[in-house]
């Protein structure tokens, strides 16, 4: 029996997190010097089902990401973006459903339960109007069950001093990862899972060095 009324795509979240780094810090005095950003945030997901009254919602508050940020003439540049989300942190509010979700959606063929991971080498955030959020399009790969697939998400970034906040929505398709839509007793989820990211990043004064995407 396949169950899991739920699904999640936290991975996307990760991507979002990266954005956080954007614009703000880049406009600091050493505009062309990349600075590291540590990001924390949450990702929520929602997936409709074949029953009109049933939608599965879930959330994790332990999204983490790190990246470097710098300012360029055409906007803020994010580099070396890496984000991760432990699968076990995703909860739908129903323990049995969470078990099913981990088992049928996130468990790899070898029995492992790998974290969701997002990676992107670089993203440029378009400058917004004064006092308006800038828009970042993050393109990279999102890995679910350890399988990476191309993934893009658009984030709105706002800054307040050294603090950045990024919020964005995205959608993934389970079928892109070869994941069968979970079903339980006649209720089957749709293939598309909607994601919402809400992340906050702190720009460090330390200068980032290196090109591997790791923050020092």
């Amino acid at each position: 029996m396949k169950s899991c009324f739920a699904m999640r795509l936290p991975a996307m979240t990760i991507a979002t997190a990266a954005c956080v780094a954007l614009a703000g810090p880049a406009r600091s005095e050493r505009a062309d010097e990349p600075k590291p950003v540590e990001v924390r945030g949450s990702v929520a997901f929602a997936v409709d089902t074949n029953v009109p009254a049933v939608t599965v919602h879930g959330k994790s508050n332990v999204l983490t990401a790190h990246l470097r940020v710098r300012t360029a003439p055409d906007g803020t540049v994010l580099e070396g973006i890496e984000a991760a989300l432990p699968v076990k942190s995703l909860e739908t509010g129903m323990g049995l459903r969470d078990e099913h979700m981990r088992k049928y959606v996130f468990t790899a063929g070898d029995g492992r339960l790998p974290d969701l991971q997002f990676k992107s080498d670089k993203a440029v955030c378009a400058k917004g109007a004064p006092r308006q959020p800038s828009t970042c399009q993050l393109s990279g790969t999102l890995a679910i069950r350890g399988t990476a697939r191309p993934f893009t998400i658009v984030l709105k970034l706002t800054e307040d001093g050294d603090t950045l906040r990024a919020v964005g929505d995205g959608t993934i398709a389970l079928s892109a990862y070869g994941i069968e839509r979970p079903s339980q007793l006649g209720v089957r989820t749709e293939d598309a899972v909607k994601l919402r990211f809400d992340m906050t990043g702190k720009v460090s004064d330390a200068r980032a060095v290196g090109t591997t995407g790791k923050v020092r």
Binding site: A46, P52, V54, T55, M94, L96, R97, G186, V187
Partner: peptide, 29 residues
């Protein structure tokens, strides 16, 4: 938890009365 009306779990759309198969699963969960 996102169950917008009774019909998700009850056989009767108005709610009350026996649970449908999915509702029995939720009852256990």
């Amino acid at each position: 938890l996102g169950y917008a009306d009774c019909a998700a779990c009850h056989i009767a759309a108005q709610g009350g009365g026996p649970l449908n198969a999915y509702g029995r699963g939720i009852d256990i969960a």
